[in-house]
Design a protein around this nucleic acid. Structure first.
Lengths: 295, 295
DNA sequence: ACGTATTGTTCTAAAATGGAGAACGGCCAT
DNA sequence: ATGGCCGTTCTCCATTTTAGAACAATACGT
């Protein structure tokens, strides 16, 4: 029987206004309650409650200890609520912002499996590419995919996205296959984004930096659309694994200049630094990390 | 062995980076430490530390629990520091503002006895009649004597001061003894304060309100000075018990119009509402309350 | 005043808990 | 292979805690 258990009992004694009533609420013998209070008074060398039959009077010291006890017991109950493993403890909301196509193409199964495993978690997934304010918009997590390193205590790198150049499988029946970077200028280049001119970065087989500045033939913020355009023979595009992998497997896409390596992008799981992770967040974090590592 | 004791042990295991080192620091067997950690992991259904000989790795859950544990253990240690009765826990400052003459005449012995009983308390007593700002001037308590009720959560009424009218024992050898309130106008009236005209309030034997408006013959903010002037035959004054009682006992003063009752003043012990009472403050509060009740 | 009910305290025996120490397996350096 | 150190698990025993009974104090009704 420890300090905080004694304080918990003391609190209930104060609230019920009697040893017998507290014993009833706690489901233990009144003699045990009486003894815990006496031991507490002994430890603190102070009468906490003046109590005889007919007289019940919380002392000033007792009042003060009660206030303090409420705080520490509340803190302890919060820990128990967050860490003791029962499904009742998982109940509650969890909201996550996920890049649209990464979420739909790559994470759908994992997200659905998570929901099935923890039905008591009220899961909100927001498929949205915009940058969100975790604090103000009350999200627990955001998943971000970026070529930049997010240097923040609230951000964990959980995976990697690789990009490659692709054309449709029928494209080189009517076009010349490029053999070096400059050959790409002779083709329509399809760009993920919105730019009049832009740059793709590479490293060649000797690890030497290369870059191609070009005017996009087509701009789009949808990787799925660019995939379709590429498969349809409209040009050459730079696509991420999670968009391209299935079409590659089906033979709808062929890789262009496979010796050129493009910079990896990181998948980051971000939460607000001002929040302690609760249990649901922790369960989600573990799941999503495993899903991205397995991907 | 309770929840918080387990968390305390867990914290030390994390900080020392090993079961054996923690056991050494705690002065208990490593098997006991190992068992407490295992029980904690069982309770929370989570591995907190990956640990085999040569591998020591705090898990994400372990990291989070450690942060939470620091907080609740710190809170508990604060309570123990404030409530467990050892002189080491009393060490520290205590500063009190006391009305000058009330403090010197009435509280000196109690204050000195308190200091003798708790030599580890750094006691600062400021004998000063001005109103002080408890927060800004960093006082733990102020004692105030006033005819008004202080209605504040930080103020406790701890006693009463009664005033009476007095003259020197030789005064009525050369003056006519007053038999009613109006007779007082024929005498020099000595006033505690600073006024051109002022009022004394009374209740007579029938509990009827009476008042005397007068121009003071002598103004002073020192009750001790007014006592001396009264004993010296310079007039009639209204004096508080704590100033007059000794001279009355010695026969140096006689009471004037004893059937008239003046309003009681209250003695209040005031502390800042923004502060939790620490142990020293509580000890002082109890002492000063008993001293004023006994007075 | 007396009897009854309720309260909190204290005591005793039984149950529960927790620590110490020994034995064991794993890992690392020599 | 050997020795040292680590953490784990088991067993025994000492300590703590609890339940229930007995008792004293108080309040209330007759």
């Amino acid at each position: 029987m420890g300090q905080i258990e004694d304080l918990r009992i003391f609190g209930i004694v104060v609230e019920t206004g009697g040893i017998s009533k507290a014993a009833e609420r706690l489901g233990i013998a009144k003699s045990a309650v009486s003894r815990r209070i006496s031991l507490l008074e002994e430890r603190y060398s102070a009468i906490l409650i003046n109590r005889t039959p007919g007289v019940w009077d919380l002392t000033a010291t007792g009042k003060e200890l009660y206030q303090r006890a409420l705080r520490v017991v509340g803190e302890m109950d919060g820990i128990e609520a967050d860490f003791v493993n029962t499904s009742a403890n998982n109940a509650g909301p969890l909201s996550v912002s996920v890049p649209r196509e990464f979420g739909i193409n790559f994470l759908s199964n994992a997200l659905l499996a998570f929901k099935a495993k923890f039905p008591e978690i009220q899961l909100t997934i927001d498929f949205d590419d915009r940058l969100i304010d975790l604090e103000r918009e009350n999200y627990d997590f955001a998943i971000r995919i970026t070529g930049n390193i997010i240097d923040s205590a609230g951000a964990t790198r959980i995976g990697t996205v690789n990009h490659r150049l692709f054309a449709g499988s029928q494209y080189f029946k009517t076009h010349v296959m490029p053999t070096c970077l400059d050959d790409l200028r002779d083709h329509n280049l399809l760009y993920f984004g919105n730019a009049r001119r832009t740059v793709w970065h590479f490293r060649d087989a000797k690890d030497k930096r290369q870059e191609l500045e070009f005017q996009p033939f087509l701009n789009s913020n949808s990787g799925t659309f660019l995939l379709m355009a590429t498969i349809g023979g409209h040009g050459i595009s730079r696509l991420p694994d999670f968009i391209a992998s299935e079409a590659v497997a089906k033979g709808d896409l062929v890789e262009v200049l496979p010796d050129l390596v493009m910079p990896e992008w990181g998948i980051f799981l971000v939460h607000s630094e001002k929040r302690l992770l609760n249990r649901r967040m922790r369960l989600f974090s573990e799941m999503i990390t495993n899903a991205c590592l397995a991907g």
